[in-house]
Design a protein around this nucleic acid. Sequence first.
DNA 1: ATTCTCACA
DNA 2: TGTGAGAA
Length: 348
Amino acid sequence: MLIHEISRKIGITARAIRFYEQKGLLSPAKIKENGYRTYTEQDAWRLQTIISLREVGMTLDDIRQTLNQSDSSSQEEFIYALQLQRSMLFRQWTGMKQMIDTMDRMIHAAKVNQTLPTEQLYELAGHNKAMRDLRDSWRDHWDFDAKASQFDRQLKDENLSPNAAYEAALNLIARLVSPLIGKKGLDVGTATGNLAGKLQQLGASMSAIDQSKQMLKLCESKYPQIELKLGNVLAIPFMDGHFDIVVSSFALHHLTQPQRTLAWDEMLRVLKPGGRICLADYMLSDASEQSTYIAKIIASGANKLPMMHEEVELYPIHTDLIAWMKQHASQVASHRINELIYIVYAQK
DNA sequence: ATTCTCACA
DNA sequence: TGTGAGAA
């Protein structure tokens, strides 16, 4: 096939096809004497997948990497790339909604003022940017991909005092969100799926998200029935009003306080009217208890605990997370959620 | 008909 | 992320 023939067949310009080649996505054979490109069925297939991935917003760079991987290795990497793109679209989507909201405020400001409300506009734009930065601010400082294979074994380790009551906490959550039959639930930051799996077993139809590919892989092998998505709580990769129940266990302490506020908005967004949120996490009542606790962890040799990363606010949660939850509990009425349950899980 | 390059948005 | 024009 010559270039125009294939361009007609696929439905893109010949120019674009050469452009993709230049970007390293394609390497058609060339006829010796005149240098014309010739395209095989293989090339046509490849071109089709290129424009398919392009259609869902992947950059040419990402497409190149994805394609090169799927050439050599398994299907798995390819699916991961698709999941990654999907979660990125949700980030963009939440960003777009934020922009629209900002625009509405700008329009309102322009209406109430007769003159150009320069200051308000600037302020609104600043807030918009701050929110966008916040949304993109999640970093995995703990390397959960690397921790995945050890995760469940560590939980079972009796020496890790914070995790001794782990099972009990999950059971408490399950009890608090019951009845579960026929309910759609989301577990945020599911890791290897222990909480989601439990709720699923009790009759809920569970979805779960995690930002770690390896954690998801393990979760999938443990609980194949759970719908898993790659993504994080700052842009939950589900549509609005999708769940009866949103739960999270021992995940929120990995967020900073501003991130937590955003996480809360996201959990509300995906929750149906009348839905329930149930969150559990490590929480100590005051600073002295906190430092004692940290000392205890270090003494037990468990200094590899996820929340102990030195570059992050070291254990910022306890008191302010309690306050945060209480504050949002009072917000329930205004969001017309019938019932919000929060667990303050106090480590002895 | 096709290729390449330069410029352009 | 492409496109248009022009020379070969």
